[in-house]
Design a protein around this nucleic acid. Sequence first.
DNA 1: TCATGATTATAATTTTAATTTATAAAGGTA
DNA 2: TACCTTTATAAATTAAAATTATAATCATGA
Lengths: 322, 322
Amino acid sequence: MTIQQLKYIVALDEERHFAKAAEVCMVSQPGLTIQLKNLEEEIGIKIFDRAKVPLTPTVLGKEIINRARKILRETNEIRDFVVNEKNALEGELKIGVISTLSPYLIPLFIKVMKEITPKVHFIIKEANTGQLMHDVETGALDVAIMATPTGNKNLIEHPVFQEPFVAYLNKEHPMAKENFYEIQPGDKPMLLLLQNEYCYNAQLLDICGLKAPGPIKDQFSYDISSIETLKNLVRAELGFAIIPQLSTLNEKEKELFKPFKDPKPVREISFVVSDTFSKKLLLEKMNEAIWSCLPEAIKTNVSYRKIRWNDSPYFVDAISKV
Amino acid sequence: MTIQQLKYIVALDEERHFAKAAEVCMVSQPGLTIQLKNLEEEIGIKIFDRAKVPLTPTVLGKEIINRARKILRETNEIRDFVVNEKNALEGELKIGVISTLSPYLIPLFIKVMKEITPKVHFIIKEANTGQLMHDVETGALDVAIMATPTGNKNLIEHPVFQEPFVAYLNKEHPMAKENFYEIQPGDKPMLLLLQNEYCYNAQLLDICGLKAPGPIKDQFSYDISSIETLKNLVRAELGFAIIPQLSTLNEKEKELFKPFKDPKPVREISFVVSDTFSKKLLLEKMNEAIWSCLPEAIKTNVSYRKIRWNDSPYFVDAISKV
DNA sequence: TCATGATTATAATTTTAATTTATAAAGGTA
DNA sequence: TACCTTTATAAATTAAAATTATAATCATGA
């Protein structure tokens, strides 16, 4: 069965005349006759009764012709869909980006998008995981760029890339001289976490094989809201941190940023949209743009261990507080 | 766009590997690669991102693959539909036949159907138009063989053949010596009608260009329920009749059965079913059977004037009494 | 009833398109 | 660096669809 054959039977049903139908299809009459014959032989029944004047579809033929019509409509809809998507490369798009990624990716991203989709106006908001999910669900945001999977059935996730985590050690750390990092017995209480980012913390705890944050130090109560603050706390030798690799890009002194051993822990970064989101070609362009920004070390496929933040036991408790 | 190309992208989405997908489709890897390229060029977007490992559909690609899946499912359903229909050539079928056709067609019809569908048990009932329509709508009958169009939106009609009307004159009729019949000025009061067959009468009145039956004779009140009675009344010189051609088949003396001049008035005989009726191949076989019974004179396409009984003004009044 | 016109089917050939085999290119891996 | 895996490309082959020409069928009208 071919799409061409389906076109022929539909044309034949409309014209009820081989020569006219062939003309409509811009082929010769024998071409159409032969293809009808082929189709009828393949499915095993006569679709048209040639004895009747004018030519008439058989009872079964009518049913098959209607199904053919539907199939042809749907193939045309594929074309239309693509055309509509291309037309959708203008207008406004509200993007939310997880704060642990935003400062490192968005400046590069915006630069590229200005070139490939000059007619789209991007409105970008930085937020934490809980806010992003909420805003996509309510429609306040069109797209969130965040760590996945979310486990939220109302959201659709399109993975973009895998971002490895690296450890940021201070000079006093026992592994400060190694060229990779592995969790050490004394590390657990020293791991610095982010405030208001349960999801990020859940990932770190999973990496370190912990179920809950270490005991909070009495002396200080940190209100850490960004990776940059975290890095500064490490520099002040108040602990060590596990941070996403993109946040190390602009660092001059790379020695104390230690990659993990394979399989490296990574977080999956995805576009998260609602099921009604329709500008899929725009997502495609955004995907291209991000890949053109990524350093080779991240593009390259590595042996990794994907960290899921939403099935961490810590996260389950924490999310209820959000 | 070809069905083959759609199969390829679906296989590729399932395997995420060109060589494996090609194996599933039982073609070579370059064959699949080229067809994917052709399809992508035709619709104007990339469906798969080859840079990712493993191969991943683009955001738009996912949508197209899903549409392709649906189209492929529907093409398979065409095959399944035909197979199911072939399996449906057994069981029971309740047929109702209009009484002005039944005695002449059904004996021949049954004989043929016994040969072509030996496993189907036919239950045949003779009735008038109103009863047939009602029984098909309620499901008491599977198929009615009757004059159409009915104008009933709940019923589906599959025309089978056109049956010409002929006039049956008595020897005293002014046209008794002619070899065709045309309505004569004095004919109107002499036209014999059937009791309980509004539809049939409506057709006759339409043929004669009348809006209502002629004045009923005081002397007799005929309760005529069959074409055969009608013929006997003509023989008794109580009037003349217009009768369907199949009812003249077994008559020995053909002289007084007069065909009309072209365009001949005909009634359309159809299979009438409800929209849920599914044994369409069986209808097809019944259609074949009827055509094998019909005399050449009816099979042959003639210049005709189709008589619609349901938009006769007489019928509109009459049907409300049914 | 025989020639005619209209319509569909068939045959032979041509054209087009799909597929194959062989091989190159790209990118990761030991 | 050499090797392996995977996808792309080239050239040749095969298969399929389409075309032209013509035959068969059948109703029509002189």
